[in-house]
Design a protein around this nucleic acid. Structure first.
Lengths: 162, 162
DNA sequence: TATTGTTATACTCTATAACTATA
DNA sequence: TATAGTTATAGAGTATAACAATA
């Protein structure tokens, strides 16, 4: 049990900044696109994937915590017409989530405001050197944390089914 | 709409690192103390306040988003005996939340493991200089974000009551 | 047997609005 | 009139376990 003053500051600042930023983004995305931050994230992942398509399991591992949680969110997005699901051809157990044209339109509509929130909230406070240092340090932290947290399928294996 | 490569990296790393860290802490706190991260945060705030006591409104502004949300969490913590509420003497509208001895015990029980999670997850990846840079940059970001997000009482005034 | 995805279900949490009481 | 706190209520999200289908 150590954690000096600087590290304690860094930790609390990380948690609070992340939370506040998420709150601002949530508000902007809901207002301009009628979607949550999580839904935005899912759509953005799909949009940058080849053919706007990903297997449900792979998508679950990148964002949502349980598979049933992704089924729930995918259902909502499907109801809104922003995403569709279709059976995979190679593996008939699999389902692919595909972003629709309408989904891409919502993404485009929402993106400028989203970037603006991130710029104003996060980077107006930082110069280039600070931003670069932040990217390095947080990138290292994130990579380390990825190794410490189990994926959705690993968690499923170790407990029940989910 | 700009946001160069480094800033984009910093942003995604911030959001993912914050989320992963919260997931690890949540697991540890639930397992060792039967409390959530939010409840841990509330208890920790009280513990460091004079006489372990804060007004409900002040407590709400530091952590929880709506007042009714704090009432809910305070009720849970009161049921577990980790906190009690008592009427304020100066202002009879106010209620003070006070951490109990049992609450302090849970905090002590849980703290070493909590610090360990933060150390292993966050700082094993960073040297002193990086940790200091992180504290500076994130502190600046947090301060800026605080100015952009309304407090619980401000939000209440601008909308309904809540 | 293991994996993919869905579903049924129960639970936690959150927020809005209405309410009481005090300033 | 404004503020402090609670409550009723309804909605969103989450996770566990059980399920069907395919590998």
């Amino acid at each position: 049990m150590a954690l000096d003053e600087r590290r304690t500051q860094a930790f609390f600042a990380l948690m609070e900044a992340g939370g506040l930023l998420e709150m601002l983004m949530e508000e902007q995305l809901r207002r301009e696109g009628g979607i949550s931050y999580l839904q935005f994230f899912l759509l953005a992942r799909l949009a940058q994937a080849p053919q706007g398509r990903m297997r449900m399991t792979d998508l679950a591992d990148t964002v949502v915590h349980s598979r049933s949680g992704l089924t729930y969110q995918a259902g909502k997005l499907e109801d809104s017409g922003l995403l569709r699901r279709e059976p995979s051809e190679e593996d008939e157990r699999s389902v692919s989530a595909v972003i629709t044209d309408e989904g891409r339109q919502v993404l485009e509509k929402v993106l400028p405001g989203h970037v603006e929130v991130v710029e104003r909230g996060m980077f107006d406070a930082l110069d280039d050197a600070q931003a670069a240092a932040l990217a390095d340090a947080l990138g290292a932290v994130r990579d380390r944390l990825r190794g410490l947290t189990p994926s959705s399928s690993e968690r499923r294996r170790s407990r029940g089914r989910g």
